[in-house]
Design a protein around this nucleic acid. Structure first.
Length: 206
DNA sequence: AAGGTAGGCAACCGCCACACG
DNA sequence: TCGTGTGGCGGTTGCCTACCT
């Protein structure tokens, strides 16, 4: 049974579709890429709706923007994400969560879309494997502690509570505020936040 | 060789924030 | 101050390809 919100979504969707009547969708052709790049070379990458019109493209402004940012933009790197980049993505994701554009901002030549895709197709699995492994290790540890009757230093509940804490976005926002000179920001907390133990990192270098 | 399946990735969708008149 | 248009973002979809049976 479809919910009311589902119905609303469908209505919105059909309205969107009506707005886009006559607008091309799907994969971009080399010809479209060429036209888009030419117009941006002349007029710059702003006012995407007018860029689409000037290029004579039957595309929406959003589509043009996405194509430019994710594919046509100069100095863009594609594929072959290095171990260093992967490590940085993992650390930044731990710090920021799914704020892909911010993460991409710290990886020159990489796009938010690429990083998001890479995360969803590669790193997500690694994280799950890591979690399963650490759960197993924790269970083994508890069994051993129980057998030896040793009191725990830190309960799993406390650990879970720590892990579920929201990142401090005030600090995060300051870190990514490029208007602030680096020297003015105390980066000590970043170092603390990004410190992963060697065992954790070791799992990703295997 | 043909059909099925899973993974990767480009592109789209919908929401939100902001600029501008 | 309000309404509208546009751009930016994260989530999601769907196509293509490689691999498996």
């Amino acid at each position: 049974m479809a919910s009311r919100s589902d119905d609303n979504k469908r209505k919105v969707k059909s309205n969107e579709a009506m707005k886009n009547v006559g607008v091309s969708k799907g994969a971009w052709t080399p010809e479209e890429d060429r036209k888009l790049a030419e117009v941006i070379a002349v007029h710059g990458a702003k006012k995407w709706k007018s860029i689409a019109a000037k290029a004579g493209l039957n595309r929406g402004g959003k589509s043009c923007r996405l194509r430019w940012l994710n594919y046509l933009r100069p100095n863009i790197k594609r594929g072959n994400i290095s171990e260093q980049e992967e490590d940085l993505i993992l650390r930044l994701h731990k710090l920021l969560g799914n704020r892909w554009s911010l993460i991409a901002g710290r990886l020159p030549g990489r796009t938010d879309n690429e990083i998001k895709n890479y995360w969803n197709s590669h790193l997500c699995k690694k994280i799950k494997q890591r979690e399963q492994q650490s759960t197993r290790q924790e269970k083994q540890r508890l069994v051993l502690l129980e057998g030896a009757n040793i009191p725990e230093e830190n309960s799993t509940e406390q650990a879970d509570e720590e892990a579920s804490k929201e990142p401090n976005f005030d600090n995060v926002n300051r870190f990514f505020d490029l208007s602030i000179e680096e020297g003015q920001v105390n980066l000590e907390w970043v170092n603390q936040f990004l410190e992963l133990d060697e065992a954790t990192l070791g799992l990703f270098s295997q």
